[in-house]
Amino acid sequence: MNLAIEHVTKKYGNHHAIDDISCEFSNGVYGILGANGSGKTTLMRMLATVTTPTAGIIRVNGKNILSLGDDYRDMIGYLPQHIGLYKNFTADKFLHYIAALKGLSKKEAALKIEELLDLVNLMDVRKKKVGTFSGGMKQRIGIAQALLNDPKILIVDEPTAGLDPKERIRFRNLLSSISGERIVLLSTHIVSDIEFIAKEVLILKNGRLLHKRNPQELLHEIAGKVWLVTTAESEIPRYQDMFKVGNIVRSESRVELRIISDDRPSLAAILTTPNLEDLYLYFFEEDFDAGPVKV
């Protein structure tokens, strides 16, 4: 399976939500990392054919996805960022409906739904109306519907938003367990979602693709730029003014700051091994969101 994005641009009015992006995907998990408004959703919508590029072509195995039409849609599973559900449908009914939309026979659907409800741990609420579901449950049923047709290309847009840390881990494991024979595209602005499962990370900023590399190579990019500084609590504002400050760890009277900087921020600073969070901070200084604590 080969998915290729060729010079794709999406404009809303004069604004480039996606600006001339080209890249290729083969089987495996890809993390699309970017701050809010960087164009993740727009890119995924084009991949899901719910919106069309202003310019450029997306091909699967060499064929334009828009000419493939329903045949392409048969290959994909899509979990939108903001999912709408029929409030009055039970989980079961909702999944049966999506299965019908995806062209599964009633028998196939029943089997698959059984399997997926188990996978996303919603078996005991299958007869409950989705209107009563919590954010996390909605997200999980969203994942289940995306997987109904055993998609060769799975497109999930910020799937971990609204999940608690435990659900998050469960979801991460779920994704990596099903990623074998398919392309999984996962967008997030939370680094820990993709840190260990992504084959490659795409860094999106203002609609442009800054990087597409495997996490190790990306980390290489900021090797020698991540520092630990131990200092007094009162010094924090001064460092925050001058540098990109990540984690702050407090211990008794002292604090340890994690600083991303090309130059040594202070004489006492010591170099440390970069992680993806540092990378994110490096690229997206503004709205930094390290996500929940890693467990």
Partner: peptide, 11 residues
């Protein structure tokens, strides 16, 4: 928001 499912599915 259900249109997202409609428009991205086979049928």
């Amino acid at each position: 928001g259900m249109d997202q499912f409609l428009l991205s599915s086979k049928y």
